[in-house]
């Protein structure tokens, strides 16, 4: 087993509510993180990602200018953002399935429902760090593999191709066959 050195992790927290940003910042600082940058809307969230190159983004869904789902999509677009592999934890008061699916399909790494707790936030970060998910690219999606379970016997049209563990840092380098 290994422990997380939070002082090595840089966060951006995007939430339009100042109180919620303060709560999340308090939790992260108590975990041991020292570099936490805040953004109050989707646009400034994207700017902060570009400016500070965080290790993890924590974002609300409902925000002015553009929301957390759009922010996630923009980050996952390698033509629009320099950090398409950035782990993204969506932290939202939306708990309905449709919102979880929307976040997942935009490329979110983890989803966490408000009210936030120290335990739940820690576990999501731990998952991001200790159990990183492979990235996949399809015609309509680039992001963490949305499957949590790998069935080695699956042979349908959505089966994964390519060698597991291929370490291709730039998603633009991955060519899809026509």
């Amino acid at each position: 087993m290994a422990k997380i050195a939070f002082d090595e992790l840089r966060f951006v927290v995007a939430d339009d509510n100042a109180h919620m940003r303060r709560i999340v910042r308090t939790l992260l600082r108590a975990f041991g993180s020292r570099e936490i940058y805040e953004a109050e809307d989707g646009a400034s969230g994207l700017e902060a990602v570009e400016a500070y190159s965080p290790d993890i983004l924590i974002t609300d869904i409902t925000m002015p200018i553009f929301d957390g789902i759009e922010l996630t999509r923009m980050i996952r677009n390698p033509e629009g953002c320099r950090h398409p592999f950035l782990p993204i934890i969506v932290l939202s008061a939306y708990s309905e399935k449709k919102h979880v699916i929307a976040a997942r399909d935009a490329g979110a790494t983890e989803f966490l429902c408000k009210p936030v707790s120290a335990t739940a936030l820690y576990r999501r970060i731990q998952n991001v760090v200790s159990n990183p998910r492979d990235f996949v690219r399809t015609k309509s999606y680039f992001g963490p593999d949305r499957r949590r379970y790998v069935n080695p016997n699956y042979s349908g049209v959505e089966r994964r191709t390519g060698a597991p563990g291929d370490n291709i840092v730039d998603p633009n380098q991955v060519e899809l066959e026509a």
Partner: peptide, 26 residues
């Protein structure tokens, strides 16, 4: 057409394990 050609492209791109996992009791 929408789901064909799903390509596993890498392990994560960002290796946070190397960056911030340290020996110790998790």
């Amino acid at each position: 057409a929408n789901t064909a050609m799903t390509r596993q492209v890498n392990k994560t791109g960002i290796n946070l394990r190397d960056k911030c996992l340290r020996p110790g009791d998790d």
